[in-house]
Every structure is written in C-alpha cells, then in structure tokens.
Amino acid sequence: MTSPYTPHRTARSEYRTIRGLRYHVQVWGAAQGAQPPLVMLHGWMDVGASFQFVVDALAQDRHVIAPDWRGFGLTQAPGADCYWFPDYLGDLDALLDALAPGQAVDLVGHSMGGNVAMIYAGVRPERVRRLVNLEGFGLPETTPDQAPARYAKWLDELKTPMELRSYDSLDAVAERLCKNNPLLRPEFASWLAPHWAQPAEDGRWVILGDPAHKRTNPVLYRKEEVLACWRRITAPTLWVEGDRTNLAQWWGERYPRADFEARLAVVPRLRREVLSPAGHMLHHDQPEALARLLDDFLS
C-alpha cells in the first residue's frame, strides 16, 4: 500500500443538528480574521474531506468549512426513499445560519455541490461574496412529456433495495479510486480511502454513501427555473473545468456543449479557467493550480 498523503493543515470534525439531521463538518483554521469563511461543497459520492489537498495548497490559512452532505460521509441519512434537490439548499442555508451567521461567505462547489452553490447564490445573493463553480454543469434539459416514464421508473426502483459495492480492504478502496480517476496520485487515494469508506461488521469496507442516492429522482430538471436563479447571482463568479472533461461521457447527445455554453452566458460577472491535465475531479488532479486560482480570485 502506498503511504498516505500527510496533510499540512489539520482539520477538525464538528457536528451540528441541521434540519433534524446530525451533520458532520470538516473545519480548518480559526473563525477570526479579515476574510469571510470559505465554504466548500463536495459532489455526488464524495465527502468534505476531499478538499484537504486544495486547503493545504492555499497561500493563506483560511477559515474553511466543508460539510458532508446528507447521506454522505459521516452526516446522517434522512432514511428517505430518494433525495430531493431542494433539501441541499435548505441544509446549506441552515448550515450558514449556524456556522457563519449574518456573514456573506466565499462559496465553492464541485459537481453536484457546484449546482447547489449556483442556485443558492441566486436565491440568497446577499449570503455569497464570491462564488466558484467547479464543473457543476447541471443536467440535460427535460420536457413535461418525460414525466410519466420518470415516475414509472422511480416506482419500479422503490420495489428493490439499492446497494453499493463493498471492498475487502482499504487498499481495494484506494485502487477503486485510482481506477475511477487515473490522474489521482496514489498517496492521495490512500489518504482518501478511510474518509470515503468504513468497515462493516463483516469486516468488509463499505462506502460512506446512502445507497438511496442511486435511485432515479422522479422530479424533472427544469432548466428555465435554474437559469432564473443563475441570472440573479450578484457575486463575482469563477467557473473552473478540467481539459479532459467531456459532457458526452455522462449524457451523450442529450446535453450538447453548446447548450451548457448558452446557460453559462446568463451568469453576470463571470470569469472562466481551465486546468490541465485535469478531469472532473480537478480538486484532486490539480489541487495546487486550483488553490492558486482561488487565492487570486478570492483575494
């Protein structure tokens, strides 16, 4: 097994009751300081600790807050049949009230977290000083005629318990992380593995994610509603993507790049950057380069 990465800045775990759930939050640095809190939101099947490499590479010792979303990491799962996107907005709003009351924060979101951050910044523009979206592309546009089939698929999936694959060792978890992302450094994978999984009673390692996350969401993605929120963003916004990311790898022809470009065009005060070489997990692939961008943009 490769020796795990050694963090330069130590995180502490805090737990808060957020909307009835026991929420786990990774916190770096002290709350005092001239700069506002830096809040970092992870993506689907990830955890707040995933930002450790970027936090270590920041030039300044920022006060950083990175929650595990509901049903991920060490945050309690709601025990629901599936997850509803508005709940992430509700959780974020309550978290900011608890951890940064009355403050405008610097908000960074990756993938799913980027989608949450963008909508939140349009709904609560006074709460966001600077906004960074790391490949939160949104989803393919849907039409009302898709609703019957979507509901039927959801009902069918409710009849069968969802499961996540388990692993026989931490090494196997780290190997899976590297397989998912060939650019991931082995020492990063070894460090991430115990944050991404935990041992079960049978000794196998299970992913720290509620299997219900895999179920189809019966609610259609309404692009125009999302864009109405994006248009109301007042914070300077930084979009960052990896040069190896290809929308077609997830959605084929259902979500053309031109569609995304048209969506991003509605965001006021937008700056764009591309990291290389980097894929979707750009905070793992290029943490030092990403940290330099954040230092410059958030200064």
Rank of each mutant, 00 (worst) to 15 (best):
R269P: 06
V267N: 01
R232W: 09
V240W: 13
A11C: 02
E175S: 14
K179V: 12
Y120V: 12
A66T: 00
G122I: 00
T10I: 14
M281E: 08
T6K: 12
E288N: 10
K159P: 12
P186K: 09
Q146S: 10
E175L: 14
A262I: 07
D81N: 13
A30Q: 10
P148K: 06
W250K: 10
R244Q: 15
Y221W: 06
E288C: 07
C178N: 10
W250R: 14
P148R: 08
Q249Y: 05
L184W: 05
R176S: 13
G33M: 03
R19G: 09
W230F: 14
W44F: 15
S111T: 06
D91F: 03
L38S: 03
Q32D: 15
A77P: 13
E187G: 08
M45R: 15
W250I: 09
T234Y: 07
R124F: 13
V55F: 06
A104V: 11
W191Y: 14
M112P: 09
R231Y: 09
A121L: 04
A80M: 13
V25K: 02
P67K: 01
M118Y: 02
L294I: 06
W251R: 02
R292T: 13
R257L: 10
A30I: 02
N133A: 13
A104L: 12
Q198T: 15
L21W: 10
R12V: 10
R19P: 05
L131M: 06
Y120Q: 04
G114M: 04
E241D: 15
D56E: 09
V47F: 03
P78N: 12
G73H: 03
D168K: 13
K153G: 13
